[in-house]
Every structure is written in C-alpha cells, then in structure tokens.
Amino acid sequence: MNPGLKLFLILIISLEISLVPNLGANLIIIGACLIYLLFKHINLKKLFLLFIIPLFAASVVFITIYYFTPSRSLYQACVLFTRIYAYVFLGAAFTETTSFLALARSLEQNFKLPSKFAYGTLAAFNVIPKIHAEVNRIRLVGDMRHYHLSFYSPALYFKAILSAVSWSNSLADGMISHGYREDKERSVIVPIALTKKDWLIFSSIIVLLQPILFLLK
C-alpha cells in the first residue's frame, strides 16, 4: 500500500478509537493488525516485544481506572487497556512495513508536501547518530568537571542548541551547494505509485470500521 495513504489510515483509525470507547472494536483492530503483521512475516521476537512493551503502561491505566475511579468500571478499564495495545499494534503495522524514506517521498510526490519539509527533515534525521554522540559528549565533559548535566540543566540544552545551529547552517549550505532549491520543481528519482487499488483498500477499511465502532457493543 502507498506509504502516505497507509499513514493516514493508521492515524484516522487511532483518532477514532481515541474518541469512541469500544472494547470489541479495539480487539478486532488488534487482531487485524496481528494477522497483517504475521502475513508480512514479522520476526517472532519483535512480535513478543509488541505484547510486552505496552504491558506496564496499559496495566497502570487499568489499575487506576478499575480500582481508583468512582465508577470502578471493568468495561472502561478494559477499553483503555486494549486501546493502548491497539495503538501499539497499529503503529507496528506501519513501522514494520514502511521505510521513512519511502514515506517522505510519498508525502512529497502524492500529497504535495513541500520538498523543503521532506528534505529538511530527512537531512536532520540523517545526523541522528552525531546528535546522540554530541549530547553524550556534552554530558561527559560536564561530568569531568564535576558538573552533572541532566534534563533540568539549561547548560545542557544551551550547548546542544549551539551545535544544532552550526549543523543546520552546514547542512543547508551543503544542500544548496549540491543544487537544492526549495521552491523549484524537482525531478523524481524513485516514483512512488498511488493507485486506485490503494484508494480502494483505504476507503474499504474506513467504511468497514464505522459499523464496528458505532454499532458493535
């Protein structure tokens, strides 16, 4: 399926289940995502993690709603518990089957996202390992001077932002020197198709979801 359209589908479903509390719908969505992921040959270790990772957050919500709210409703607690699992499975159905580069290309080509957003963001994301190293370096330098920098220290953010300003200038200069012009028409190297079949799958799922959400009890 087209990456951009798949993302919109996931977002619409997530938003709908956020607004409508329905246990049956949550379970059907989790089941459907599970089948989709198995169909796409997801690694079993990853699948196991999908059940384990949300357990802590989901349990906290369940305990709070079931034991510590005036209504003590088991149904509502189960809705919120399964909602968290539905989010994670929906997310995995997207991230396990789509690359970010394909998504950026799809958003630019199929959904008219200005190229400066697609490429500006990609440029920044490509230096993530350097940023990670830089943040660690700043903290290490602080530690060497017996000056611990944590998430509440303005100096840590200040130093990291100084690096960000310098990198953003270098990256933008690099892009411009390689011929990038933000408001000019660009040629397409890897075309991403958005077919009638994609739209058909998208609209069928959305149409199918409505009776499940609003009629299923």
């Binding site: 500006g120 953003s168 933008a172």
Partner: peptide, 10 residues
C-alpha cells in the same frame, strides 16, 4: 526556509 526546518528538526 529549509535552514529553519533543519534547525527545528535538530
């Protein structure tokens, strides 16, 4: 501009 977008993303 692209420079601002890169900075914000960073």
């Amino acid at each position: 501009h692209v420079r601002d977008i890169i900075l914000i993303a960073l």
